[in-house]
Design a protein around this nucleic acid. Sequence first.
DNA 1: ATGAAAGCGCTAACAT
DNA 2: ATGTTAGCGCTTTCAT
Lengths: 335, 335
Amino acid sequence: MKVTIKDIARIAGVSTATVSKVMNRKDEHISQATREKILKIMQEYNYIPNTAARSLVTKKTKTIGLVIPDIRNPFFPELARGAEDKAHEEGYNIMFCNTDDDAEKEEKYVSMLIEKMVDGIIFTASSKRSSGFNYLKNNRVPIILVDRDIDLKGVKGKITVDNCKGAYDGVKHLLQCGYKKVIFLSGPLTSHPSIERLKGYKKALEEFHVPYQEEYIFEGTYQRGWGYEVIKRLLEKEIDFDALFCGNDLIAIEAIKALKQAGIKVPQEVGIVGFDDIYIAPLINPELTTIRQPSYEMGYKAVDMLIKLLEKKGKSQEKVILNTELIIRKSTMQK
Amino acid sequence: MKVTIKDIARIAGVSTATVSKVMNRKDEHISQATREKILKIMQEYNYIPNTAARSLVTKKTKTIGLVIPDIRNPFFPELARGAEDKAHEEGYNIMFCNTDDDAEKEEKYVSMLIEKMVDGIIFTASSKRSSGFNYLKNNRVPIILVDRDIDLKGVKGKITVDNCKGAYDGVKHLLQCGYKKVIFLSGPLTSHPSIERLKGYKKALEEFHVPYQEEYIFEGTYQRGWGYEVIKRLLEKEIDFDALFCGNDLIAIEAIKALKQAGIKVPQEVGIVGFDDIYIAPLINPELTTIRQPSYEMGYKAVDMLIKLLEKKGKSQEKVILNTELIIRKSTMQK
DNA sequence: ATGAAAGCGCTAACAT
DNA sequence: ATGTTAGCGCTTTCAT
């Protein structure tokens, strides 16, 4: 039989209110003797409070929703772990959902989470959304956006990275090395980070008086295989380039593979800069020069921000922009 | 204001019981007219049922706990995604926790999940546990073990892989290629899969009449960096070997890096077989020969098994052993 | 075909 | 310092 607060109260010879007070540490006015007695009995009977009952009255569940495109994209496990670590520190749990950047799934999952009464949501939203969400109409579940800086109802904070600066740093590095013809293997240009990176790319070009050429921009996906395929196509079409600035490290790694197969030397003939600095970046050959994103930190800070909001009842629309960092390794060289 | 079942009932001019029935599709005895009216009003007012209230009475939450060592280990995002996909198919959500294979954290997180009244738990348990869990005393939360085959109270099913056979296949392949001195760079030998793999390693050796040497077994961790370090040490000590069978692909990839730095050629001088077949395995140079584990499928099947158990109220202690597959690529060669 | 009412396990005024 | 009590929003028997 499941033991409830009533059982504990009965056994201890006190009221349920008293038990409730000691278990929630609202027990300044409870005598040490009763407190100890109750605690002891709770232990002894292995009492586990029923969260559903509690949530029903408090309207809090101590759980946070994490809505991301795909946990298999190596950027997100780091973020998820950061989020989970902070959540557990504060006594929260994390529920996670994969949307594949599909607006319909986003809609469905966010509403599922609201039904489950999560206290808040950490959301990496695709930018493709038609407009507002229906499910936000009657709801006040705070949302913290991570990675994507878009406008959405219910958003109470944003954690992003300066994608423009990151890209600028990467392309500038390429140009400083002496590479001249830099192709941008971008992620989907519907997503905010990619758009910002394109800006950074252009800015660096401008600064070095290199004319911007539309034909050097390739809009891709973060699907596996794209980086490899696009290089194959570039090579077939005999497009002339000597450097690649990539939308993420996976694209960069695939590009390196395709280039190697074609007998083209990295970094001697083509310099490559990735984005993210995933754990594998220093392990491949050549070690990948890339723009590091603080992905763990983004998850951690997002949860931190959310919980502060929840517990301080703050209403401020905070916006935090974290720094990227150029990590120079071996896929680029001074020419 | 939040709209509740009472509001809907009042507006529709029916009782809450009727509303409850139609929303739970227990409405065989409800007239089409009322059903439609209620549905329409629910829509119109954007009614979201309160799961806490529902769970309080039904004792079900439609959420599943996922307890894994570390989502950053590339084996787990696949598994997690498989689990999540199946869960969503069936209308469940997933709560996830990272234990770092620490028995204390496992204990804490599992009990948190039970408090939150998850309907069941998918658990990759470390083998280091003292014995039973306290929190299982008064609880009937079914647990499905994945990846690790150990004995634990409350376990209602297991999904594993034939690690012995997997290792056997890998080592046999190495031996067939003509490699003679195969070092096993194992994961922690406290964990069940590693123990099984050691068995498979020995079996293959025996079959090829290669004497087993304790000095060829290196027990490591799945922490980043270990594979690299251990090779450095091997090389310093001038230990003689011509093949590596690795506890996972990450170790293999790091080993390749260390070997390359020492000017040792893979696969010409040293043949390497990994384990898992993570997405990066075919992208590195040389492409990694490895033992594929159906990680996505393991997560998917675990949730499938759990939900079947939950909904059919079955009590069977099922055990499913999935197949591994030897994927031959370029880190091994016929000598 | 529909409704009345009890109760799930807990919290939070408010009393005492 | 402790207890009484009224819900929280829903489901579920049992009536009607």
